[in-house]
Design a protein around this nucleic acid. Structure first.
Lengths: 248, 248
DNA sequence: CGGTCGTTTGATTACGATCAAACGAAGTGG
DNA sequence: CCACTTCGTTTGATCGTAATCAAACGACCG
């Protein structure tokens, strides 16, 4: 059962990350109405073209965003984890430009846009924090553009793995440097702009070089230092306050 | 000479695009202090790692954002034109994650973050509109990820050309469907994740097929319909209110 | 016990990268 | 005004990474 207070606390913490907020802001957030929702793996939260009217907090589980070309090729454009706030293009009043689907069973807290609007008018700092949240998302996307546009297959995959490791750790899910996002190799491929066959081969290479270990669908980083260097990974684009993940 | 009122009007129009704003919002915007600045072609507005404290309105000219991999490969992550608002990661108080450089001589209006902050606290709708602006930027980046990750060279270049044509038209710069962004082929390559040699060959192919015409550094679309289809271009991700550009 | 889904392997192909050099236009300085 | 440089475009030849095609394998599930 999803705990309303837990979800809102999670949201508040996330917003606080970007901008100092006060007790009144906290009160405004904690007073927001919440519609709990569980999404089974594979189900859609939104489809491209729909116009949702909520903001969504991901309380547990993983979601991913994707879009398709006209001839059916898929590209994953985002991976979301615990604590992420998905704004669902809501204030644009425009239709969604991509799909959001559950990677695993996920618990969500939906907040109607109307309520966000009222809270923001009363406590403008909340809107500023959400603006900041959108800026961070854009920063991640810029790094993805660089990653896909200018790194080779090995670097690309390594980079994604590093990013996920750091973000997982920031979300309190990091068992050391391991990675608990259960992406299939095909999904991994769709995230980095390669084919699943090629991803498979690169993963085997990484394993044979002692960079990673694999358990089922999980990838565990064995040699963070070398991984980081192969990935050309510099976590500053994630705009974290706290020091970035370092080798354990 | 840069006209203060012109710049602020431009900003207000842009913000209005996302969200209905009232007379008081207008007054707040028009009262913002403005620091005019001219950037010669090639000069930097910000460099990665710097922490600017302004918001910037591009009044005329073109800017582009880019970042580099560790081994010096460059990827262009955004192209900005007249009327665009660059937020410069300002509220994050974090350092910039990419460089912004002038493509052509550009006139800018800089607004200190402090002033934006005051205006936003008084008129929260302004912050909501800037949030929306950031969401649109993210939407464009998602499309770039798809473009670079999943389309072949021809499609990629065609798609970028289409996007620029539509955005130029929206910025009041569209002489029909022509394109007035003076990108070198190397810059074009860095925007779509290819080499300049290959871009050159694709452009020649496009020309020979009657898709485009070229004048100096400009690309002019000759056959919008076919271009759009080759690019697999659907402008909805730009989140415009008005109907998208159609064949003249 | 099939059946589905994802992973793995092998063989071949091709798209775009890389390397190298010439060319053209614009700008600079003697 | 003409060498000379610089920057960008163009062309040609070759190479290599990743795509494609095809099939087998393994795990999980009803």
């Amino acid at each position: 059962m999803l705990d309303r207070e837990e979800a809102l606390t999670m949201m508040f913490r996330r917003l606080e990350r970007h901008r100092p907020l006060g007790a009144w802001d906290r009160k405004a957030v904690m007073g927001l109405p919440v519609l709990p929702k569980v999404l089974e793996a594979g189900n859609y939260l939104i489809r491209e073209g729909e116009t949702p009217s909520q903001v969504c907090i991901l309380v547990s589980g993983f979601l991913y965003g994707h879009k398709m070309t006209g001839n059916g090729l898929r590209q994953i454009v985002s991976i979301h984890m615990q604590g992420d706030v998905l704004d669902l293009q809501t204030i644009l009043a425009g239709p969604a430009d991509h799909n959001v689907q559950a990677l695993t069973r996920s618990e969500l807290a939906l907040i109607p846009w109307r309520a966000i609007e009222e809270a923001g008018l009363a406590r403008p700092g909340l809107w500023a924090a959400m603006w900041a949240e959108a800026l961070v998302e854009a920063a991640i996307l810029r790094e993805w553009v660089l990653n896909i546009g200018r790194r080779d297959a090995l670097g690309r995959i390594a980079h994604l793995i590093c990013e996920l490791a750091v973000r997982l750790e920031g979300a309190g899910l990091g068992e050391g440097l391991s990675q608990s996002v259960p992406l299939t190799q095909e999904q991994l491929a769709d995230a980095v702009g390669l084919t699943s066959v090629h991803v498979n081969r690169i993963l085997q290479q990484m394993k044979s070089e002692g960079l990673i270990r694999r358990e089922k669908r999980l990838v565990i980083i064995e040699d963070w230092k070398r991984m980081r260097s192969i990935a050309d990974f510099n976590p500053s684009y994630l705009h974290r306050r706290q020091r970035a993940l370092e080798p354990a």
